[in-house]
Every structure is written in C-alpha cells, then in structure tokens.
Write a protein that binds this DNA or RNA. Structure first.
Lengths: 242, 242
DNA sequence: ACCTATTTTTGACATAAGTCAAGGCAGTGC
DNA sequence: GCACTGCCTTGACTTATGTCAAAAATAGGT
C-alpha cells in the first residue's frame, strides 16, 4: 500500500470519528446536519501528548474545548501545591465552556491524562452561532444545568459526608454508569481517585482495605467488585464505616 | 386618606418594584421593554412568610423562581438531619433554574429566611420564550456559568482548605461585595454562616475568637471589621491559623 | 422592663483524616 | 536476571474538627 493511500484512509477515519463525536455529544443533540456542519467549520483540531497542559487557571478564555479522543482532567492547585481534581472528561464531553459565557478567565487548570485529540471552539464564532440557533442554546443550557447538578452533589458529598460515604457513593455511581453489573473498573489511578474524592491516597487506601475486610467490596488492582450494594448505599447515606 | 387610595398606592409601588427587580436582574439584562413585559406576563406572584418551604428536594419542577423581596436559602439535609446551606439568595436572584433545563427534579430544598415575595416562572412558557429570544438565552447561559464558577470556588474551598481559610476567603469576598471598606455586616446568623462554610457554629465561634486574638478582625455581633486584610488574604491561601 | 426562646460561646472529650516515613509490588527497559 | 520508577500500602503520630453539655449573651414579644 502506498503511504498516500494510508494517509487518506486515516484522514477519512478521523473525519468520521469527529462527526460521530459531535453529533453524539449532548451539547449538539438533535441539531440538523447543516448546523453540525457549521460547528465543524468553526472548530479547530488540537492534538496533545499525555500530561500536557491545555490551559491554566486565570488564562484568558478565547473559546472552549470538546474531547474527541483521550482524557482530560480539570483541577485546582492549593498554595502548598496540593492538587484537587474537579472533573475528568472523556470523548464527547465539552469543557471550559463556563468562561465563554461568564466572560472571565479560566477558573481551573486542564491537563491531558492521555494522548488526546480536542476540538477548540473559538468564542466569537460560537457566540454568533448560538445567537442564531435557539435549539443549540437550549442544549447548552441543559448541559450547564447538568453540570450544576453534579456540582451540587459533589458539594453535598464534600461537606456533609465523610470519606467512606463519598467513596461508597462514587462506587455505586460508577457501577450504574458502566452498567457492568457489580463489577467496576477504575479508569483513573487510585491517587487521582483520592483527589477526586477530596482526600489523599493513604486515606483512600485504608478505607478500601476496611471495606474489603467488611465484605462490602473486593479489590483487585483497578477492578473492584461490589459484594454488598445495599450496604454501600446505606454507607453513602449514613456515613459511618463500622 | 381612604383605604382604597392606600391600597391603590401600595399596588403601584409593588408593580414598580417588580419591574425594577426584573430589569436589574442579570438574567434579564439588556432586554427590551417588550421582552420584559412578556416575562412579567408569564410570571406568577407568590408570597411566603418567614421559614416557609418553597420547594423540597426531589419535588417535580414546573418552573423556577426569582426573588423580588426577602431572602431564600437553598440547602441539603443529610440522613442524620445535618443541614448544609448551598446558597442564600436575595432580591434579583433567580433560583431553581437548573431543573428547568436539565429536565429533572429539584436537587435541593428552598426555604424563606424572611417574609418573601417571589416570582414564579412556569417552565413551558419560559422555554417557549427562550427559544424565541436569543439574547435571553445568552443571559441565561451567563447566569448559569457564573453559578458554575461560584461552585468551583466553593468546591475548591471545601476540599483543599481548612475552615479558617474558608472563613477568611468569605470575609474578604463579603467586604468586596458590600464595598464598605473594611467593615463587613453579616446578613445571616453565625449558625447559617457556619453551615455555608461547611462547618458547625462551635467551630466557627472558636475560629472567630482566634482571629480576634491575632488582630486579624474585630467582631461585634454581626459587625466585623477587617483589621489586616493582607493577613486574611494570606490565610485564605495558605490555610494555617497560627 | 420582663420573660422566653434563640443564638452564641466555652469547655472537655472523641475521632476522622492528614503528615511523615518506610516498605512492598508491578511494570519497563537494559 | 536486575535495577529503576511509579504506584500503592502500612504504621506511628499529630491535628483539625466534630460531639456533647452547659453557661452566657442576645433578640423578640407582651
């Protein structure tokens, strides 16, 4: 096969993938082919290696991103360098949309966890687009609302539950999301999970060990089996682990 | 004066107040008189005594509210009855808009802290309105984005800072917001402030006492004078209070 | 001004979770 | 096979913050 043919195939594949992602993302749900085309036209492809910074807190915001492939973490860093992960986004998720509308700078940092392909949507073009497409703006409102709802849950967890409860609630949530019965696979490292739960690796490790001992779960590396879902759900509510 | 005249005056005053509130709220910023009128037409007045429930978590959402007068707290309750306040909203603030777009139930409870006058905006009419008014939807997007940004800060505070840091950061924020130099007035009780900061009244009381001793602030009931703004800002960053 | 109810403060105590330090385990490359 | 690196676990210790109980202060209503 010629190199040129390979390249051509590759490009076609990528193009198809992008269109798939765009049309599946909740953000662009129910838009017409024409509208999708308009969005594709204003989007700019960006490729990042693993561990690269996409933007930093207080950077000026010229637009937002959509993950086509790979994984991106959104996090904040405390003065002492302690890092707290706010979100981890995968294919189809937009991120950094907030400052596009609040007209401010980025409120957190974004870094790739894997080699990633992102679409960058420049702000001015997108604002134009949205002012002309009511259905797009309704989608956007729905996405932001969902995020707000998730944040509400996260704040609730952080402020009125202890770490075991947060972990239990996260495990049950993951099992539902992955729809693999009682088997859960962590797509992130335990250290990152600790940060996402607002704690540190040591504490997480101890709690996983405790839950093991109490036959709530069975941990094998990144594979976790939920042995007692009711017990976990109670824990997520009440909070006390023995 | 006749009773009828009094009543008439009262009604006119209220009408003017409502229009003021509506036009000042960020949600409706820059809308035309005609558009404001349309909103007023679909809005329903609701009056509540102090301490009344506006909606409860998991209630069906038929629309959202705007505070005309009074004060409303949004809070969640843990299984043991521990309450955590997420927001406190005053005149001009909308609340409960999230489920209007995410199409779900209310994610938290709302209760009046004072005798309050609210506008209720029914969902179907508002969705119609927004699909026809791009500028309204852009405003709405901006408001939701702002909220998301505030939540980001709140999560950051809760997860990577200790209570003294959260308090310091809140005091500085309040001083900026109230624009009264170094004097801050708490519009809520200290117990409610504790809940908003994700802690309990006892802890808050102790920390206020400590900050007093270190000449960072001077507390007199609900009046607080910031004596050392730089010190407070450092505290908000670093976290350690002596 | 008085009484009551609420809010705030204080103290003694219990505990969850962070820090520091060391060791184990797994994967990778030489 | 071996060392290296990153990730995870474990232990001893410290500390911040919550719990319980009671006193003090404040605000509201009559």
């Amino acid at each position: 096969m010629s190199k040129i043919g390979d390249n051509f195939n590759k490009k076609r594949k990528i193009m198809k993938k992008i269109l798939d992602i765009i049309s599946q993302a909740p953000l662009f749900n129910g838009l017409s082919q024409e509208q999708l085309g308009q969005i594709r036209q204003i989007a700019i492809d960006k490729f990042y290696d693993k561990g690269k910074t996409v933007f930093m807190e207080s950077d000026d915001c010229n637009g937002f991103y959509i993950v086509v492939a790979g994984k991106v973490k959104i996090y904040k860093v405390s003065f002492e360098g302690k890092e707290h992960i706010l979100h981890i986004y995968g294919p189809g998720n937009p991120f950094g949309e907030v400052p596009v509308f609040s007209g401010r700078k980025f409120p957190a940092n974004a870094e790739t966890l894997l080699r990633s392909h992102l679409l960058f949507i420049p702000r001015p073009a997108f604002v134009d687009l949205i002012s002309e497409n009511p259905s797009l703006s309704l989608n956007m409102l729905a996405v932001l609302s969902m995020r707000l709802r998730q944040f509400t849950v996260q704040i609730e967890n952080l402020s009125l539950k202890e770490v075991p409860a947060r972990l239990a609630s996260y495990l049950v949530y993951l099992a539902d999301e992955q729809a693999t019965g009682d088997f859960v696979f962590l797509t992130i490292s335990k250290g990152q999970l600790a940060s996402l739960l607002g704690t540190i690796p040591e504490t997480l490790s101890r709690i996983l060990a405790k839950m093991n001992k109490q036959n709530l779960i069975q941990v094998e590396g990144r594979n976790i089996k939920l042995l007692n879902r009711n017990g976990l759900e109670e824990l997520a509510q009440h909070g006390k682990l023995q």
